[in-house]
Amino acid sequence: MSDLEIQAGLAGAAARRPRGAGRPGPAGGRTGAAGRGSDGRRFGQWFGGQIGLAEVLAAAFVLFLLVAAFAPGLVAPGDPLAIDPRSAFQGPSWVHWFGTDESGRDVYTRVSHGTGSSLQIGVAATLIGLGLGAVLGTVAGMLGAVVDFTVNRLLEVMFAFPGLLLALLFIMIFGPGPATATFAVGLATAPGYARIIRAQLLSVRSSAFVEAATVLGRSRARILVRHILPNTLAPLLVLGTLGIGQAIIWAAALSYLGLGAQPPAAEWGAMLSAGRTYLSTAVWMSFFPGLFVVLTSISATVLGRAVERRLRHA
C-alpha cells in the first residue's frame, strides 16, 4: 500500500497548497492529519508551532528504534535466539515484558533485535524506490519529449499493476528472501515516486529563476544541477520519510507471506507469521511485533508531515 501514502501526499498537497498561505495561525496553515490533537497544538505553540506532542512522541519512538537497531543490547540485553522450552507461551509479565514464544524465546528481546533488519529493509526499499524514481523522473522531465513519452508509457505499464503484484512478480523471478523482498518493495514504489518527481521537476523548470538562469546564458547541465535539482530534491525528504513507514509495512507483509525474511530470524513480519499459528492461545506473539510495525509507520508519517510543514513554511 505504499502508493497509498504517496497518493495521499499528492492529493493532500494539491488540496492544501493554495490554502496554506491564506491561513495565519500558530499551527501555520492546515497540515497533514498527523499530530493535531488539541493538546498537541497548545504544546506546539511553545516551539513556534512546528512541534506538537505527537511529533515528540514519534521522535522518541524513532530514537528508541535507532538505539535498538544499532545497539540492540542496550535496550534488550538478552539473546533473541536463546530458547528455554520450560518457559514457553508465557504471557506478558515483569520478567518477559512482551511474553515468550513457542520455544520460550523472549518476545521483547526478539522484537528489539528485529528492529535492525526491519528498519534496514524499510529504509533500503525506500531508497531504492526513491533512487529509481528520481532517475526515471529526472530523465523524463529533462531529456525532451521523446524520452518523456517513453518513460511515461513505461510508468503507466507499471502503474497498471497494483503495488504488491509488482513485488510478487519480482519475487517470482528472483526467488524469496530478504534482499529480494527489499528490491521488490523498492521497485513497486518507484513509479509513484517517479511521477511526483517528474511533476515537481516540470513545475520548477518553468519557474522564473530557471528562466533567469537561461537568460544569463548558463548551460543546461549547470541549470539542472544548480537550480532545478536542489528544488526538486527537497520534497524527496518528505516523500522518503512518509514512504519508509509504508515500505516497512510492505516488507513485513511479504515476510508474513513467507516471501521475505524467514522464520528463525527476529524480523517483525516473520515473527508475526510465526505467531499466526498460536493466535488463539498466545496473542502477544503476534500483537507486539505488529504493534511495532504500526507504531513505526505512524511515527514515520508524523515526522514526515512535520518535515513537510517545516519545508513549506521555511
Binding site: 507483509a253 503476534s286 505512524i298 508519517t301
Partner: peptide
C-alpha cells in the same frame, strides 16, 4: 483515528 486506520497493516 484516520491516521491510525491508514497505517494499519492488513495482517495485523
Amino acid at each position: 483515528l484516520e491516521i491510525g486506520a491508514a497505517a494499519l497493516p492488513h495482517f495485523w
